[in-house]
Design a protein around this nucleic acid. Structure first.
Lengths: 347, 347
DNA sequence: CTGAAAGCGCTTACAG
DNA sequence: CTGAAAGCGCTTACAG
């Protein structure tokens, strides 16, 4: 605990005692009515319910949680809420939790491990039943584990976290890249490069693995020269277009690390007089809004962040209900969206 | 209260009693140390603090709030979290609240008044100290007022809500449109249309008012024919380009309702062989990501949703601290961002 | 089927 | 400066 707030009394709430007095029963009976117990007589129940309505009673869940030693909140810690992917994810989480009677405690870290520590410290004091954590970059898994404690189940999302044996949910990167590669293969392409991403990131490794898997299955050898690294930004990708063709001469298609890289590559191709989608096929990953609006529109993998969020909520609640179940590692489905950018003729 | 959750005991927490026993003081003393009271002797404090660390004590804020009749949470109800504007806004709110020692209770309504009712019902049971509400479309202000109750201060964001005397924060729509119009005037334009939006929306009315204000100040009469309605989508705006020129013949520039409308108008201009930015000047509103990336880049009004969120948090906390202050109506600043689209020559 | 009593983890006058 | 006692609003055995 760190902060000092001005102690501000909140509304003089009407309590079970007021209701009990108001209709001549005991507080216990009121509580039983509130919790929907079948033990109480229908007439009594009706009387109590009328009184609840009359006095505009509002349940104090915090008090109930304290007494019952339960929790009705889940902490959701997001590294970057301004990223539409995570915003959608958060919406999905909140939607699913709400449906199960939980409330979402939000915490955003802005990719700062220090802020993450502070946020977790504050959230833990509110005794959430569990936590969904999309870790900030360079998070220390062991430190997080220590701070959160053993009592709060955690689901880690999106980024691998070493040193903690928590449940883990991530995109199905490998399958996504495999689907994209298979799609290009089915159109007749054989010389398919993998363009973009950093080889030391787990998501890039997984996407490369999917590409390699599909190539191998088609009886093609994946040449390591055909894996071109670059930062996942448009400008960087545009600038590396030349390198792609030097290292992968004769390539007729590329599976790109993500949409930004693909859109950058389109710019680079255009600058070299190569018409993307007509003379060179390419695919992205993420299905960002602009993917559908580019010229040509981009074939990509829709990652359905909202569904992902719902899925995460469900996984965490499973864990909350069954704390001793074995640790889970789950991949979220991705879906290939075919658009114009992959329509290039094979020479 | 509606839902039934499986009662799940959470961790066997270490409490002030454990700490008190552990170092031979009373629970009261531990509490005083926790709350940073100057009453306790430095030696005692040190002993207690060591014991807190040793036993990895975590403060139970819910219990403290119950006893003190305070609250350390603020409810944030967002109509559409998947809209980047609101996501950024939420990030700003959470950031500011965190800094003040509050935790954010998230609720998203997806623009559904029914879901909004359910969400509010659930949030209110968690006894937030206040609420920031971006209402769903067609919300009933009086019904909301009744549901939330008089005890919880509410700040309404973005959309006017009739029937409730709550604090209100919205974008400075009028000033934004005025700045855009003044910018076009300063470049020599005199025949400036207002394009897009629905006349019955309060934000459109305000933006039109800003346009009219600037025109009037420049000694120009705003012809009602030069106000062209259309839905704020790209496709719709592109399709209405012809109408704009029929109704506003000789217009050399347009202030658009928002960026989507402006981007659509660019498409429509292109289709008619008019080069936007070179032969016709236009401005947007919002500064969405694509505004900087279009050809030409779009002159627009940056609305700074994150700052807006911080501002909202501050306003609400002011209200929480001073419940009886007069109701406030505040506009959030907007900033003109000049880019290529407004660079057209005046004939 | 209903009520009296104890207790969740904390804080706060009130004595000493 | 420290401790004993009461109480925040709720729930849950336990009697009846």
């Amino acid at each position: 605990m760190t902060t000092a707030r001005k102690p501000r009394a909140h509304r003089q709430a009407v309590t079970v005692t007021d209701i009990a007095k108001g209709c001549g029963v005991s507080r216990a009976t009121v509580s039983l009515v509130l919790r929907g117990s079948p033990l109480v007589h229908a007439d009594t129940r009706a009387r109590v319910e009328a009184e609840l309505k009359r006095q505009r009673y509002v349940y104090n869940r915090a008090a109930a949680n304290l007494r019952r030693r339960t929790s009705s909140s889940i902490a959701l810690v997001i590294n970057d809420l301004s990223n539409p992917f995570f915003a959608e994810f958060a919406a999905g989480v909140d939607e699913a939790l709400g449906g199960e009677g939980y409330v979402t405690l939000l915490g955003s870290t802005g990719e700062s491990p220090e802020r993450q520590q502070a946020v977790l410290g504050s959230l833990v004091e509110h005794a959430p039943a569990g936590m969904i954590l999309s870790p900030a970059e360079h998070s220390d898994g062991l430190a997080l584990r220590r701070q959160v404690g053993a009592g709060v189940p955690v689901l880690v999302f999106n980024r691998e976290l070493s040193g903690a044996d928590w449940d883990f949910l991530a995109l199905d990167n490998q399958r996504g890249a495999r689907l994209a590669t298979e799609h290009l293969l089915s159109l007749g392409h054989r010389r398919i490069a993998f363009f973009g991403g950093h080889a030391d990131s787990s998501s890039c490794q997984q996407r490369r693995a999917g590409h390699a898997e599909a190539m191998r299955a088609a009886g093609l050898e994946a040449d390591p020269d055909w894996l071109v690294e670059c930062s996942p930004t448009r400008a960087e990708a545009a600038g590396r277009t030349g390198e792609l063709f030097e290292r992968a001469p004769g390539a007729t298609a590329a599976v790109c690390y993500n949409d930004n890289v693909a859109l950058g590559l389109m710019l680079g191709l255009g600058a070299r007089g190569v018409r993307p989608g007509a003379e060179f096929a390419l695919t992205g990953f993420d299905d960002i809004t602009e993917a559908a609006l580019s010229t040509p529109p981009l074939t990509t993998l829709a990652v359905q962040p909202r569904e992902c969020g719902r899925h995460a909520a469900q996984l965490l609640l499973d864990r909350v209900r069954e704390p001793d179940a074995p640790v889970k590692r789950v991949v979220a489905p991705v879906r290939l969206v075919v658009r114009g950018s992959s329509g290039a003729q094979v020479p």
